[in-house]
């Protein structure tokens, strides 16, 4: 099976197929490790994270649903979530003081019923980011790719913390609207 897709491999991993798991690792670990490195910056920490991530993938493969996205997307989500959890634990001092609760802008958002993002055609995110000011698109990218926190973003863009959060939330509302078109 030279061209087995990640989706097929993951389905077999769900059944406890170790050979499929090895192959899945071979075909996806460079991508996931790249992500861990970008977020965690430290190589040894990224290696530990990657090990933890594949152990989770092995245990949770049965919960992957092809309708909800691709196998790679599913694995990336596990990888990013784990890397970010690690990052936030490593630097507890980054817990910002005085950040307002999550209600900023909640009322201004358009039609909650239409927040159906399920159509996951993917590439549209790049086009939708272009609808934002360059700075704001950069903030979304930095958060996703580099794992930067609100505090780091606020420092980078030299704005107060709460301003940063309302910026990003506004950007997300624009993105959501654009993505659901």
């Amino acid at each position: 099976m030279p061209d087995t897709t990640l989706d097929e491999l993951l389905a077999r991993v769900a059944l406890g197929d170790r050979a499929a798991f090895r192959k899945l690792y071979g075909q996806s670990s460079a991508q996931l490790f790249g992500c861990c490195l970008r977020i965690l910056k430290e190589r040894r920490d990224a290696e530990d994270a990657l090990q933890e991530i594949y152990i989770r993938i092995w245990h949770r493969a049965g919960s992957f649903r092809a309708e909800a996205g691709t196998a790679l997307g599913w694995m990336l989500a596990i990888a990013r979530n784990h890397a970010i959890d690690r990052l936030r634990q490593r630097r507890p001092g980054l817990l910002p003081e005085g950040m307002e609760a999550a209600e900023i802008l909640a009322d201004e958002a358009p039609n909650p019923e239409e927040s159906v993002l399920a159509s996951s055609e993917g590439r549209r995110i790049a086009a939708c980011l272009q609808e934002l000011d360059a700075n704001r698109a950069e903030a979304v990218r930095r958060a996703y790719v580099e794992g930067e926190s609100y505090l780091e973003l606020a420092e980078r863009f030299a704005v107060p913390l709460n301003t940063m959060r309302s910026w990003l939330r506004r950007s997300l509302i624009v993105l959501r609207e654009c993505l659901s078109r």
Binding site: S29, F33, G34, G69, T70, G73, L76, G122, I125
Partner: peptide, 16 residues
């Protein structure tokens, strides 16, 4: 997650 995941194209793969 599905919508954002293409952003990962910005990340260079790196063999562990």
């Amino acid at each position: 997650e599905a919508q954002m995941s293409p952003l990962v194209a910005d990340v260079l793969p790196s063999p562990p």
